[in-house]
Simulated assay, not measured.
Amino acid sequence: MAKISAFLAGEDFMIKLSRLETDIEKVAEKAIYAGIKVVADKMRVNLEEVLSEKATGELVRALGVTPIKLYGGQWTAKVGFKGGDDGYDSNGVAYQLLARVMESGTSTRKKRPFVRKTMNQTRKQVEEVMTQVVDEEMRKIFG
């Protein structure tokens, strides 16, 4: 048999809900940064594993995280490589191109995927970390 319990939303609960409404962007931002940190750290490790002994480490240093932005109603951040004027290695090759060549290979270079590997390895961990951050922030708000 189903059980129904009464819930009276008092003034204290309404205050907490309104606080949640004002703090939701901060909560989302903390959760996204926590999740993107997991991805960036693992991607850095995976990238270092596929680099040759002759590598200078420039590509690893070029790896970074974009600021969180609102795109199409969703908060997003990306892990990627420097672009623009400072997005080139000492040979004048774009970091993004180097990473793409490593990930997908070319007709003369064997592919050494690290992005796909990272995403497969971190998907569940990112969900867990983001859920923990949201739960922790909710506990702070709702007490």
Rank of each mutant, 00 (worst) to 15 (best):
V126Y: 02
L63V: 04
E137H: 11
G73F: 07
T56P: 04
R44C: 04
D86F: 02
G57W: 01
V129M: 00
L20H: 04
F81M: 00
L63M: 12
K110W: 12
V39K: 04
A77D: 04
S90R: 06
A28G: 08
G143R: 11
T66H: 04
E127W: 11
E103I: 02
M102E: 00
V45F: 11
I36Q: 02
K69P: 09
R123P: 08
E11G: 13
K110G: 14
F81V: 06
S52G: 13
L17S: 04
Q74W: 15
G64V: 07
F81I: 03
A9T: 13
L20F: 07
W75F: 12
K110H: 13
A28R: 08
D12H: 14
G84L: 05
T131P: 11
V101G: 00
D12L: 14
Y95K: 02
A31N: 04
E127P: 07
R116S: 15
Y33G: 13
A9M: 14
R123S: 15
P67R: 12
Y95R: 00
G80N: 02
G84N: 07
G72K: 13
S5D: 14
K16I: 01
G80L: 05
E103P: 05
Y33E: 15
D23L: 10
S107Y: 08
Q96C: 04
V50Y: 01
A6I: 12
G57F: 02
I141D: 00
E128K: 15
V126T: 05
V129P: 05
R112L: 04
R61G: 07
E48R: 10
A34L: 02
R139V: 10
F7A: 11
L59V: 04
L59K: 04
A40T: 06
T22D: 12
K124L: 15
G73S: 08
K69N: 14
K37I: 07
L59G: 02
D135W: 08
K26P: 11
M119N: 10
E103G: 04
T76W: 12
R100E: 07
M43P: 03
L17C: 08
D89W: 01
I36K: 02
K140P: 06
V101C: 05
A9W: 11
M102P: 00
G105T: 01
A55D: 08
G57I: 06
F13Y: 11
K124Y: 15
E11Q: 13
R109S: 08
R100F: 05
Y88R: 09
T76P: 11
K110C: 15
L47T: 02
V27H: 09
E25L: 13
P67W: 12
V115Q: 06
A99C: 04
Q121G: 12
K124M: 15
P113T: 05
L97F: 10
V133T: 05
E137G: 02
